[in-house]
Amino acid sequence: MTRSWPVVAAMFLALGGLSAVVGYEMAPPRPAQWREIAWPFPRDGWPAGRAFRCGTAECGTEVEVYLRPKLGFCNCDSGAADDDEVDRVSDVDMISPRFVPLKAGDVVHVAGMPGRIRAYDLDGSRTAIGVAVSHRCDLMAVAAQGRGDAARVQRVTLKFLESREIRAWMTAAMEGR
């Protein structure tokens, strides 16, 4: 009986170590080192939203994302239906009043909400991404900016918006909670 005790203890240690590794590997990924920053824009007719920054080391390029709900602002029938609406409502104009669309926008789904996404050139060295998604008569406006090509900034932005924490916040904000 005394010889089996070390074997049992070793099995418990091995099982505990294996459980820790599996738990770590199965844990949901955190958004790549995004940190919340202060809302950088002056007050307007809408409440301030949330702003986040991810550095070059973590995201491949420095990106800032600004998002806020605009409750009661959206066309209840068609939502964010065209590029003109994305230009008007996505808050890209707060980053820079001179934004030039790079191409036509695309249909997008963010946090289960349909809408449109569009890329812009700000000044030749910065790219902006505008996103407008809707739920019922409410709109979630998202603007992002970063250095580098538009495809990378857009990819990083969409990955961030699909993180569990941000999806949950967007859903709650659109329901007025």
Score class of each variant (00 low, 15 high):
55 G>C: 08
55 G>M: 07
56 T>A: 09
56 T>H: 00
57 A>P: 06
58 E>V: 01
60 G>T: 06
60 G>L: 06
60 G>A: 09
61 T>I: 06
62 E>N: 06
63 V>C: 09
64 E>G: 11
64 E>W: 10
65 V>I: 15
65 V>T: 11
65 V>D: 01
66 Y>I: 09
67 L>P: 14
67 L>H: 07
68 R>G: 03
68 R>Q: 11
68 R>F: 02
69 P>L: 03
69 P>H: 03
70 K>P: 02
71 L>S: 10
71 L>I: 13
71 L>Y: 05
72 G>P: 05
72 G>D: 04
73 F>R: 10
74 C>E: 12
74 C>N: 15
74 C>M: 15
75 N>C: 15
75 N>E: 12
75 N>I: 07
76 C>K: 13
76 C>S: 11
77 D>Q: 08
77 D>W: 12
78 S>N: 12
78 S>W: 04
79 G>F: 00
79 G>N: 12
81 A>M: 06
81 A>R: 12
81 A>P: 08
82 D>V: 02
83 D>G: 13
83 D>C: 11
84 D>H: 09
84 D>E: 14
86 V>T: 11
86 V>R: 04
87 D>P: 08
88 R>M: 09
88 R>Q: 13
88 R>N: 10
88 R>L: 14
88 R>I: 13
89 V>T: 12
90 S>Q: 00
90 S>R: 00
91 D>V: 15
91 D>P: 10
92 V>W: 02
93 D>N: 11
94 M>C: 11
94 M>H: 12
94 M>L: 15
94 M>T: 14
94 M>S: 13
95 I>A: 04
96 S>F: 00
97 P>D: 08
97 P>C: 05
97 P>V: 10
99 F>T: 10
99 F>A: 08
100 V>I: 13
101 P>Q: 02
101 P>H: 01
102 L>N: 02
103 K>D: 13
104 A>R: 12
105 G>F: 03
105 G>W: 00
106 D>E: 03
106 D>I: 11
106 D>Y: 01
107 V>Y: 02
107 V>H: 04
107 V>M: 07
107 V>L: 08
108 V>S: 09
108 V>Q: 03
108 V>R: 01
108 V>Y: 01
109 H>S: 15
111 A>H: 02
111 A>R: 00
111 A>L: 07
111 A>D: 09
111 A>V: 02
112 G>D: 14
112 G>P: 15
113 M>I: 10
114 P>K: 00
115 G>H: 00
115 G>W: 00
116 R>V: 05
118 R>S: 09
119 A>T: 12
121 D>I: 12
122 L>R: 03
122 L>V: 15
123 D>L: 15
123 D>F: 11
124 G>T: 06
124 G>Q: 00
124 G>W: 03
125 S>W: 01
125 S>F: 03
125 S>I: 15
126 R>M: 07
126 R>T: 10
127 T>I: 08
127 T>F: 01
128 A>W: 02
129 I>D: 05
129 I>L: 11
129 I>F: 10
130 G>H: 06
130 G>R: 01
130 G>D: 11
131 V>M: 08
131 V>A: 04
131 V>S: 10
132 A>P: 14
133 V>D: 08
133 V>G: 02
133 V>L: 01
133 V>R: 05
134 S>T: 13
135 H>W: 10
135 H>L: 11
136 R>Q: 12
137 C>V: 01
138 D>Q: 00
138 D>V: 14
139 L>K: 04
139 L>Q: 07
139 L>C: 08
140 M>R: 01
140 M>F: 02
140 M>C: 05
140 M>Y: 07
141 A>V: 04
